Computed example of a mutant assay.
Amino acid sequence: MDIIITEAMGAPGLEVLRKSGYSVQYDPSLWSDVERLKAAVAKAKALIVRNQTKVNKELLYDLKNIKIIGRLGVGLDNIDLGTTAAHGIPVVTAKNANAVSVAEYVLAAILTISRPLLAASADVKAGGWNRKCFGGTEIQGKTLGLIGIGEIGHRTGIKAKALGLNVIGCDPRLTSYDIAPDLTGITLVSEEEVLRQSDFVSLHVPLLPSTSNLIDRAALARMKSTAYVINTSRGGVVNEEELYEALTHNQIAGAVLDVLHTEPPGAEHPLFSLPNCLMTPHVAGAAQEALNRTSLLIAAAVLLELGGDVSKYRVDVNSWL
């Protein structure tokens, strides 16, 4: 088999691969069986994964024929880039393909926090008519703080400003030639000021040693008691135990988490018990249009690399290590 796909892939990209002339094995559950996975990919030329497949040293050791690894998404914490580089295996990601989807999720989270329509609807259907409880608050004039101003942060900022939010942000990876802040109208401040000034803190950073537990007890202590944290990046960026402490002690108003340290979480996860913590199953970037774009982009990039060319979506490993 030439191309192995171990997790769910959008139909448009899958169709492109199947019509390419390469043989394709599509098994969305393959990632969950390590031994079957190793056997399947041993002779493959291309491996396409999402975020569940652990492309680690153990798996890479057996990948003698792999020419390219495609990542259906942008996060790379499930891929051992040091080992892929050592084996000379390039990696391509669906950079920017889900940026609109994630940005819209962040705005949906802010609106859900501010105008509790679902809770109001449930109350009315239960016989209530509590206008004082469900009026909510306006978001115009509030401050959105972005930690990370890549393509997703940029698009989130544009949409937020259109709704009347003030937008501030920081990004240690921002270079002097990045134009996102100027195009978006994001006011650049320090990370400490983002935490201190924001009514909503939205996280848009990769999971790296420098960002692991970025939102910890100290960071939460800098936030307003009326502020919310929104995480659509990676679960490891937020210290969940210390977030639980902050939420139970009303140190901050609440949180919206699309990602968790362990996915799916165990049934006894302490954050489940908190009404001021909204949780979704890693769907911020999973709007149907985003899934289709991602599948087409990765299909095209993988085929280009198999043909001996270099895709513009190839990962610069040095920027991640």
Rank of each mutant, 00 (worst) to 15 (best):
I48V: 14
P209A: 05
L17R: 06
Y244A: 12
S225V: 05
L183F: 10
D178Q: 09
C277P: 09
A86M: 10
A120P: 05
V167F: 14
G21F: 04
P209M: 01
R314M: 05
L220W: 03
L220V: 06
D216A: 15
S212T: 15
G70S: 01
V167M: 10
T248W: 01
L60P: 09
Y26W: 03
I168T: 10
V194E: 08
G153E: 03
A120L: 14
I48P: 02
L271V: 11
Y105C: 06
Q251N: 09
K224D: 07
T53E: 02
A299R: 09
V229N: 11
A284D: 00
G185M: 12
K161T: 00
V194D: 10
D216F: 13
T262S: 14
H204Q: 11
K38A: 04
L207Y: 11
L304T: 10
M9N: 08
C277S: 08
M1T: 12
S273G: 03
E240W: 00
A8V: 07
Y105L: 10
Y244D: 09
G145N: 05
R155T: 04
M9D: 03
A126N: 08
K57H: 15
R217H: 14
P275T: 13
K43S: 05
A126P: 02
C133F: 12
A40D: 04
V317Q: 01
G157V: 00
N166E: 14
L257C: 04
D309T: 00
I69L: 10
P281N: 08
A290V: 14
P270T: 04
K38F: 06
V256N: 00
M9L: 07
G254D: 00
N78T: 15
V92L: 01
L243S: 14
D199R: 11
A162F: 06
I215R: 09
D258G: 01
D2S: 02
S210E: 15
V194H: 02
Q25F: 04
S202M: 13
S225K: 12
K161H: 04
T143E: 12
E242F: 08
E240H: 12
Y177H: 06
P281M: 06
K45W: 09
R173L: 07
S210G: 09
G73T: 13
R50G: 11
L81Y: 07
Y61R: 10
E241F: 03
A40K: 13
A227W: 11
I168D: 13
N239T: 07
N250H: 14
T83Q: 02
V189R: 15
S295I: 13
D171P: 02
K19R: 14
